[in-house]
Computed example of a mutant assay.
Amino acid sequence: SLKKNRADRVNLVGDIIISSGVIAYLGVFTLEYRAEAVKNWISLMKSFEIKSSEVFSLKEVLGNGVQIQNWFIANLPQEDFAVDNAIIMSNSDRWPLMIDPQMQGNGWIKSMEAELRSIKPTMDGNAQKRILKNAIQMGQPVILEDANETFDPMIEPLLGKNIEKKGNMWTIKLGDDVIEYSQNFKFYVTTKLSKPHFAPEICVKVTMLN
């Protein structure tokens, strides 16, 4: 309605600030903690006279109905928490690391990405490198499944998106090799651990989702 559109415009700046905070900081937390944090942020906004929606919804601010429906078709659980996680993932510049003991996120990614390649920590290092090298160069998605609390040093530059431009080409270091990096490449990480303890230097490189 016209009234709602006007309200949305008035609240736009505040809602975008809150959305940015949710994407940057709240992915790893529970539904209850997220709600409490957002409530506090709304109060803080008021103290600075920045208008925002009284009842904040990440889905209402950043969600795309067609995209969300496609996520559901790809087996994303039809609940707001899962939708919020998907929105956080799709709006973050960092690769997602999903705490996923029930494998729901894992299954969703596999349904969503037709050309998905899979690697696991238990795989031979050379096999992992070969899969990653081909996928990075060809712009294919890769999922690292069953991640442990520590990562192979070869993976860390990838987690941090340590890419460099050389001439007209983007490159990344993979092990001892510097290879061409396709901007179409995607990387997902899932772990079955319910309460993992990742090192701070890992946490700052990824978008953690609970």
Rank of each mutant, 00 (worst) to 15 (best):
V28H: 10
V28N: 11
F29W: 10
F29G: 06
F29E: 15
F29N: 15
F29K: 12
T30I: 09
T30Y: 07
T30C: 09
T30Q: 09
T30L: 09
L31T: 14
L31N: 14
L31I: 12
L31F: 07
E32N: 12
E32P: 07
E32M: 09
Y33I: 12
Y33L: 12
R34T: 03
R34L: 03
A35K: 15
E36T: 10
A37Y: 05
A37F: 08
A37T: 06
V38E: 00
V38C: 01
V38Y: 00
V38T: 01
K39S: 13
K39H: 11
K39A: 13
N40H: 08
N40F: 06
W41E: 07
W41C: 11
W41F: 11
W41L: 15
I42C: 01
S43C: 12
S43P: 06
S43I: 10
L44K: 06
L44S: 07
M45R: 00
M45F: 03
M45C: 12
K46N: 04
K46T: 00
S47F: 05
S47L: 11
S47Y: 04
F48K: 14
F48N: 13
F48G: 07
F48M: 15
F48W: 12
F48L: 14
E49V: 01
E49C: 03
I50W: 01
I50Q: 03
K51N: 11
S52K: 00
S53K: 05
S53D: 11
S53R: 05
S53Q: 05
S53I: 03
S53V: 04
E54M: 06
V55H: 10
V55S: 13
F56P: 01
F56A: 01
S57N: 06
S57Y: 02
S57C: 07
S57V: 04
S57W: 02
L58D: 02
L58W: 02
K59G: 04
K59Y: 05
K59L: 09
K59I: 12
E60H: 11
E60V: 08
E60L: 10
E60Q: 13
E60G: 05
E60T: 12
E60P: 04
V61E: 05
V61I: 14
V61C: 07
L62N: 02
L62W: 04
L62F: 05
G63F: 01
N64C: 10
N64S: 11
N64Q: 13
N64D: 15
G65N: 14
G65C: 09
V66E: 14
V66K: 14
V66T: 11
Q67E: 15
Q67H: 10
Q67D: 14
Q67R: 13
